[in-house]
């Protein structure tokens, strides 16, 4: 899931300066699950911005709305009118939704309400952790199902660096050493011997290095 974190009210407030009608626009999928940008968070954000406006004595109309996903054309139909009404939109979606909305409404100024942080999972209620960097060329089969690219601070592919101490990464005691986890899991799987297989030089062309990526599936095209 895409994990995001709300921007501070002050930051959002600064971005909407000068507009008279602002729509805070929620996205009810990934960023709703991480309690950052769902329709409910949009409602809360709008309310807080309205209070900020009151405090600052600024005349501005702030409303909220939201759709299921800001990355699909069809969902926008129900809100076109609300979007047309606004001078500016604060999108509470991840970077994808913000851009998608911007593309669809080319004359509407669009502000991000959240920071898109990573692709991750709910570790426990209230804690989300990064698990994947969408490199486009998965090696999890060789690393006991734990990704060293996303979870090792140096994305080392052939083992821990010399800084791995007591299972923790050299850059922080709060961070698990991904390679420790890999070794532990390989041990549990009784496959520690596989560690010595050299993981070859990675093809990064499927990552950011290859430019904006695209998946085309003719069989699902309509």
């Amino acid at each position: 899931m895409i994990v995001g974190k709300q921007k501070s009210i002050d930051e959002v407030w600064a971005m909407i300066q000068g507009y008279k009608k602002v729509l805070v626009f929620g996205c009810n999928t990934c960023v709703a699950v991480c309690h950052a940008g769902g329709n409910k968070e949009a409602e809360v954000m709008a309310s807080m911005l309205r209070m900020k406006a009151k405090q600052e004595n600024v005349d501005i109309d702030i409303q909220d709305s939201g759709i299921e996903r800001q990355c699909e054309h069809e969902f926008f139909e129900s809100v076109t009118e609300r979007i047309e009404w606004a001078d500016a939109i604060v999108s509470m979606a991840c970077g994808i939704g913000v851009q998608f909305t911007a593309e669809k409404f080319s004359t509407k100024p669009l502000m991000p309400g959240i920071n898109t942080t990573f692709l991750g999972a709910t570790e426990k209620p209230g804690v989300w952790t990064e698990k994947c960097q969408a490199c486009g060329n998965c090696i999890l089969g060789m690393t006991a199902g734990i990704c060293p690219i996303a979870r090792c601070a140096k994305r080392l592919m052939n083992g821990p660096c010399g800084g791995s101490t007591k299972g923790k990464c050299e850059i922080s005691k709060d961070l698990d050493c991904a390679w420790q986890l890999i070794i532990d899991r390989l041990t549990a799987l009784n496959r520690l011997n596989e560690y010595e297989t050299l993981i070859p030089i990675k093809d990064w062309s499927t990552d950011r290095a290859g430019g904006p990526r695209k998946v085309v599936r003719e069989d699902v095209m309509v």
Partner: peptide
């Protein structure tokens, strides 16, 4: 709910 409190203040 958060929004109850915010709404009240608003």
């Amino acid at each position: 709910d958060y929004i109850y409190v915010l709404r009240a203040f608003e």
